[in-house]
Each structure stands twice: as C-alpha cells, then as structure tokens.
C-alpha cells in the first residue's frame, strides 16, 4: 500500500500547487532596495496619505518621490547607512526601484479613488502596515476578499461595470 499512498499524496499536492498555493503571496515580503520601515515612520505620526497622496484622486495610490524622502532625511539621521543609499539614489538621479508587494491581476480594474471616497481605511486591505518593519501581504487579494466586503457594504458588485472590463 506504501507506493499507492505516496502517489495519491503527490498528485493531490501537485493539484493544490497548480490551482491554489502557487499564487498565495502570504509569506512573500520582498527585500526592497532601501529597507524602509513603515513602523518607525507611522509611530512618528506620518499618515499614509502624506507619502501615498494620489489615492483619493487616481487608480494608483502613488509613491513618494525621492525628493520627498530627502525633505526630512537631508536633516534627520543623514549618516544612517540606509539613508546613505537614499542620497546615492538622489545624487545619481535614479528613482528607487521599489518591489511591488500588493498587486491584482491585469483583468481586474482596481481603483483607489472610490474606495477612499467611501471611507475605507488603508489597513482594511493592506493589513496593519503601521506595525510592519518589512511590508508583507496579510490580506489575500483574492476575489473572495473583495466580494465579501462589497456585499457587506452593498457597494457595486456588477462584474463588468465595476471590476472586470
């Protein structure tokens, strides 16, 4: 019976990997170009909208420009090695290559604008980023997450009009 069980386990594992596990980005917290800690900034009272200011007016939430970081870090702990990296990027005028953590597939038209207008908190979808040193995806961006919330808030659940066009 030994080989039979092994084959069944392998097949079942392959099925799981193919259809479910391979795109579970739970564990992934990519190593960023500059190991920026949200926790430290959030504890000093900097709100999300200060850096990601395009959320209320665009599909893309926006990333802080290099100059915005330098706004403070030209004075605040400039000698810190990570901040040195920031200065190198600014001096060579190259944008910081952040790795994207939160993404939805191409056939989903996610738009921050209506969500911010409806008063949805950033933590609802992005998890408690304020308490994270390295950004990690806590809430799975799968349709189930979105649909449950849309139905609870009786937001628009029209497949074509709202998300998939």
């Amino acid at each position: 019976m030994r080989p039979l069980a092994l084959i069944v386990a392998l097949l079942f594992g392959a099925f799981l990997w193919l259809y479910y596990l391979q795109d579970l980005p739970f564990r992934n917290a990519p190593q960023q170009a500059i190991s920026f800690s949200h926790q430290i900034h959030y504890e000093r009272g900097i709100q999300c909208a200060y850096c990601h200011m395009d959320a209320p007016r665009s599909t893309f939430a926006g990333m802080p420009s290099v100059l915005k970081c330098l706004g403070c870090h030209r004075i605040v702990i400039p000698q810190y090695p990570e901040i040195q990296k920031l200065h190198v990027y600014w001096n060579t005028q190259t944008p910081i290559p952040w790795k994207r953590v939160f993404w939805v597939p191409d056939y989903v038209r996610f738009n921050h604008q209506p969500h911010i207008a409806a008063g949805v908190q950033c933590q609802t979808c992005h998890g408690s980023i304020g308490s994270m040193d390295r950004v990690r995806q806590r809430v799975a961006f799968r349709m189930e997450t979105c649909i449950t919330c849309h139905r609870a808030m009786n937001a628009r659940t029209d497949c074509f009009g709202a998300c998939h066009h």
């Binding site: 420009s65 100059l67 600014w90 944008p95 910081i96 952040w98 994207r100 993404w103």
Partner: peptide, 9 residues
C-alpha cells in the same frame, strides 16, 4: 513581482 519606480521630484 513587478517594480514601482517613483518620480525623482
């Protein structure tokens, strides 16, 4: 994962 390039200024 894709990359996000911020503006310089």
């Amino acid at each position: 994962p894709q990359q996000i390039l911020p503006l310089l200024a």
